[in-house]
Amino acid sequence: MRSKLIYIIFAVGVLMAAILLAICLAETVPDAGGSAHPEIAGLQVGGDGAARLEHIGTLGFAFQCLLLIQITFLSLLGISERYRTNELLAYMGGSLVFMLIVAWQMYSGHLEYLETGETGYFLGFPSATAWATYGTWLGAIPLILIYSLGFRKYIYTAEDEEKFNVLLAEKSERSEQ
């Protein structure tokens, strides 16, 4: 995984493209992308949520999960191969699990509302929407912590700085000649 990361990213990308194609070819339902509000000009409505998800709900959720997986792998690609230690992979894995939990809470909460017509609220929004809003916003915080707190360990170590300074010194020498 450490050295073949690009192949995994490619495979995930192909899977996502395949899902996208499957969604485009799926049986369509009227107004799947919304329709005009019956009374108020300028507003759109979603209408029948269950019908909109009937043929593509699972595919859409799979696409969402793959996107989160891709985000994690891409972040990992930005870290030099030699720093992709088990410790870092554990942090990245934890971050991914957190994002997947948020996505599941949002999706399953939405399905539950479509079945029951009832929802709780959290900080101003229906529960599923609160997961989407606050959860997604906070979902990347572990990644940001890994970057900021682990900067000198994974991103740009003292050894890296030394190597870069050597490169700059060589450049200066060349320009002086």
Binding site: I23, G34, V45, G46, I56, G60, F63, Y113, T129, W131
Partner: peptide, 13 residues
């Protein structure tokens, strides 16, 4: 309801 749910009026995709 869809407008206030996670994927809004424009839908999931």
């Amino acid at each position: 309801a869809e407008t206030a749910m996670p994927y809004g009026a424009a839908g999931m995709m």
